[in-house]
Design a protein around this nucleic acid. Sequence first.
DNA 1: GATAATAGTGACAAGAGTTGTCACGAAATA
DNA 2: TATTTCGTGACAACTCTTGTCACTATTATC
Lengths: 315, 315
Amino acid sequence: MSKSKRLLELMMTVNRKRKFTVKELAMEFGVSTRTMLRDLQELSELGVPLYSEVGPHGGYQVLKERILPPIAFSEEEAAALFFAVYALRHYSSLPFEAESASALDKFYLHMSGDVRDRIDEMKNRVDFVTPTRQQESPYLSILLEAAVQQKVLLIQYEPRGEEAGRKIQPIGIYANNGLWFCPAYCFLRKDFRIFRCDRIQSAAYDVDGTEPMDLRHVHLENKELVFQKEKESTQLYAELSRKGVQMCEAVLWLGSHLNIREDGTGWLEGPIPQSDLAFYARFFIGLGNEATVKHPTELIDYIKRLFKEIMSNYE
Amino acid sequence: MSKSKRLLELMMTVNRKRKFTVKELAMEFGVSTRTMLRDLQELSELGVPLYSEVGPHGGYQVLKERILPPIAFSEEEAAALFFAVYALRHYSSLPFEAESASALDKFYLHMSGDVRDRIDEMKNRVDFVTPTRQQESPYLSILLEAAVQQKVLLIQYEPRGEEAGRKIQPIGIYANNGLWFCPAYCFLRKDFRIFRCDRIQSAAYDVDGTEPMDLRHVHLENKELVFQKEKESTQLYAELSRKGVQMCEAVLWLGSHLNIREDGTGWLEGPIPQSDLAFYARFFIGLGNEATVKHPTELIDYIKRLFKEIMSNYE
DNA sequence: GATAATAGTGACAAGAGTTGTCACGAAATA
DNA sequence: TATTTCGTGACAACTCTTGTCACTATTATC
């Protein structure tokens, strides 16, 4: 095997083992220990963060910042990755912000000028619109880390309550409409809650040794399982004019509830949680006379009541 | 210079020049032509798509699919790129879909098992919520390409009109709320228009030789310049209760218009286009009694009129 | 059809880089 | 103190890389 190939394989082996002795690797690769020592020194010069200790139980170790063996990407693949990172640029906070920037820098460095120009040109011609928010969410990384590693965090949430801090175990994080949310088990409330990440004032790993829950099989795709089912739900039915249909299509957090007839009109039908009545009332008022609620009567009453209140503002 | 370094540099030089002769490069790198020939053959074996022609004006060429020299990323950087690509997974259509998948595959291939596990674990614990749309937008790539390269496209838009197809020159593409839009100059309407990408039935480069516009300095960040200014705008002023402020924060396409007082209440102030009055009327009705419009009177009248109409639905 | 420009191959020797062996040193551990 | 481990230097054997030279083949141009 040529030296360069051996170095690449060595790089992967070393990353996999994390801890090893020179003799061990020399045997594995079928070279002398002297050569292996020379190889390891070269890896070190190439940027692999190696650390060694002499003596029995000593040996080599790879420090945290492991690097992958060099990979050759095509121009198109590089453009695709640039595109993906650019797509997120409107978020005021992101996990991995620094890392993705440095990855793009590496690409940039290795690209010839015309590819660079092409990518720069693309940057201004593709965009993902996201509401720009002032709120920063500085603890995304630790929340995500804790979710992946099943760790308990001690956070400070919304200072107004003056609470001493609460322990949570995150399930994950997600962004919706420019804001970050963190569903987690809350040891204070002894239940699952959703936290707004920008309202988390501080976050650190818990040091009291609180026993973490086993949430390995709970993640974002199935988190509904552990969150309280909306206790009571009621059946909605509302007629929509053609324009009403279009307006509902545009909002579309109701997704499955929307039905469309051939002539363009349609109706909304499906269960809605009792607790969201206020929200739906406002929504239907917003739709104006393009929608008419037929069911449930509670919602109709709510709408009427809201109407009276609002009217008084404009009399 | 060691051979491996020379090969890396050669890779970049070759990508930059696109077309060159063996002698030329041999001189530049200070090696014999024989060596350069051997080097080029090696590059070829490494995957650089080289093509050569003998004879005067012959020489080497790099074919379209250029590959970048191999780059060593850290584990964290790889995770960051995975994260960015995952973030977009809820889009039913994306430009570069295949390319980013193949880039991730390359990473995957070169990662040791535990990093793979870590990244898989992360995948289910971070998410960007985007309304899932059924509508596919299959022509994103060509639209973007045309925008970058200032080309004219012949598209078929919304079949209902039975129109023969129209020529457009895209400025770029952007996604908003799960849907793709393409602002472009429309040669049919002789003006700038915004197209919904999912309603584009077909797209191909124009072959009639329509002279493209010079839109090099028009891109997404400044596209407002070429789109018709909203002719008349009027000054909005509305008082908000504390809850009203929160609701406006949540919607926040009004962004800059929102002002907040120390006690949590606030007001909306700023110019709004006359033509959007209907939209704002609905919006404020939706806010209910958490907002009171003081200005302009047209808007207040509109709201009242709308009210009466809606009320009649629920009497 | 001759000429020049270009890629491409094979052989070989000089030179540069790589490897293994050996001798030895230094640090940590039991 | 013996053992385990990393680490270094020297050197010979070996392997790879490079340049030179001789030669072939193709194509454009005069």
